[in-house]
Design a binder for these strands. Structure first.
Lengths: 218, 218, 218, 218
DNA sequence: TATGAATGAGAATTCATTCAT
DNA sequence: AATGAATGAATTCTCATTCAT
């Protein structure tokens, strides 16, 4: 083992049994991310994933019960990365403006992790368990945000049940918009200005109350 | 009563060659709708479809070039049915209220054709050509509606480009909402009241100008 | 039916039942020749042949018991054409020189009927009955020629049994040579000079006695 | 005794991974030889071959990219065996007599490997890549032999180009003769005496100069 | 734990032949 | 006699999973 490969593994000394195990599992996981991002779930055969990971096919089944189990873990894991990414890019402005920040950050994340979009969109049918988990994660966090905004007076007139519906609309809007506008000639691009402005108008007017000088939440 | 009108009436005694041909194609098509709606595109093998249709596998290839060709025809065909269905259920009220009618009609259509949702949602990956065709159909018609509303003064302050983005948001919203709320215990149900009200609030406030006594479009 | 198509059929007036029948059979036969010559027996599906002939698939079975029957008729029919063609191009010179004329004429025939080579060569495996018939036709005629030459004193020291072997050698030589030298860049070409001279040397010296002034056969 | 030498000896107790792998591939190869020899390439389906080999169909594709790849390897491999076989049976007599030895040895080889003839003859159409490879192998070696004979004075008056043509004639002659005379009632038999004598006369007189007391080549 | 050959159930598609009209 | 839709067996190839080493 060379120094550089040790460095890449994050360890400097020889790996013990547990670490080697985790390291192999990680290799398979990362390979799956790459493969699904590039070819989609349907083409993500165990053969392709293990080849990309540089391990034998049999090794796969030492770490995952079966192909589906891995596929179902893919989206939730990346989904959490996304939540962190967006949270870091959201400031303390008025709630309506924060929502626009989140919207933009979502598109930024797609550019950061181009595999995400495909993994997200196909998951509903190829990794339904993972998809559900992801959706619950996001919806829960999102509803909490809206509630907080309502508590701060930035939203009125929406019930908790309606929040849940709103959250699905916003997620759906993002999904369709990203599919439509994130790809130009095979490359992942930033959201066009008019897309952001349209989202801003719809959401700001439709969901939030007009911002006043002292209307900051938190 | 002519032979052809006999065929159309569903009460068939004897069909001529052309009618028999169309009838068989139709059987395959309907079987595919059923199968894809129930099992999804991935599981819609030619064997399954032809079995459902009650014809031999080889017969399939007398009517469709290959499996994909049929799959790509599925969504656009049903999509057009949907457009007609919604149009029939849309009155002449104020534009904002018409949009809510369309929203409700969409959910009604899903109950009418429960296969539609799955055929629509999976199409992006399993029948991309058909999906694109469908999306274009819908987006074009939808943008035209919004423009007319703007011309009638029911919408202001949105550009054509923004309309396109809005249309994708609305389609995305419907898609996610229908996935979340249309199924209860395996049955297709009507949209809950709070979903309709949330949509109504978001869209009415976000997209349209407040309705005045003389604010009808057209 | 137009005048020109009547002319093409070789008939000027309306065709009666028998003639129509023969005409259809002929169309199928010619189509098969074309198709096998271009794509080979293996790709000569009934669908392809009938399409080329401009008739329905079912029509095929009104004229031929099955696909194989037609294929087996192909080679013997053209083989007879070849025999006539070669015979017409053979003069009354010394037997050895006649053999060279036949050899050259064989290559000329290939250029005249470019389908022949493929039909001949593949027939052994795809139309074995027809192949055998053809081989018998040719061998019989060829042996007769050699016997006549022996009777005329142009060949000595070969028995009838040996003649049969010689004939197979000569046919084999032609077959391999034509495969090797008749195609250049997809086109059928004349036999190169050195091929003819090599054949001439081998056969003239190996089979015939040296030509004398009065050594003409016949 | 090493493991590998155990394998080579045919008496096998335990094979290691590499040996097992080679052993399986060999089983498939041998099965293909048998099947093609008996039924021809066209009937040599993967199902038939793997059944004959006693392995699962899927196993086939662990060892060969596809069906055609195997078929194209068949003839060149056996062709090399044939060359060795013939070379071993060729003495140091005069070149003309050596040629007769080779001719006889060819027929002996067919009796040794009865599958060869069919594998050879059909290859042109079913395994064209393998056929070309084989033909090149043989023609190259054959021309080299003729040149050596010319250098030794046993052949005069033939150019290199003519040699190539001669070689094709000899190969064609053998091919046709073997088809005609090697099978009697389903069994492979030796070449009849009159066939050998006819070949001997034609080639000895047609290609070589009369043998003198000191006319040995080499 | 890692390996990779072996498995066998299916997948899409082709095509000679039949047969009702 | 002509038609052409219907048939279904057979083909090649894929791939998740198993298991002996």
């Amino acid at each position: 083992m060379t120094q550089s490969s040790q460095a890449a593994s994050g360890k400097v000394t020889k790996l013990n049994r547990v670490e080697r195990n985790a390291w192999t599992k990680r290799k398979i996981f990362d390979a799956a991310t790459k493969v699904v991002g590039k070819y989609g779930y349907a083409e993500a055969s165990v053969a392709r994933i293990t080849e990309e990971a540089g391990v034998a096919q049999g090794t796969f089944y030492n770490h995952f019960e079966n192909r589906q189990e891995l596929l179902d873990q893919l989206l939730p894991k990346i989904g959490i990365d996304m939540v962190h990414f967006i949270r870091e890019r959201t400031g303390t402005a008025h709630a309506a403006r924060q929502e626009i920040e989140r919207f933009s950050a979502f598109f930024d994340f797609i550019r950061e992790v181009p595999e995400f979009l495909r993994i997200l969109n196909e998951a509903e049918y190829f990794a339904p368990i993972g998809y559900q988990k992801h959706l619950d994660n996001i919806a829960t966090a999102y509803v909490r945000i809206l509630r907080r905004a309502r508590h701060a007076g930035a939203i009125i007139d929406y019930s908790d049940e309606e929040f849940e519906a709103i959250v699905h609309m916003l997620m759906g809007a993002r999904g369709y918009l990203s599919r439509r506008y994130s790809y130009v000639g095979g490359n992942v691009t930033a959201a066009p200005e008019h897309v952001i402005s349209a989202y801003q108008k719809l959401v700001t007017r439709g969901l939030f109350v007009p911002e006043r000088k002292n209307g900051h939440d938190r």
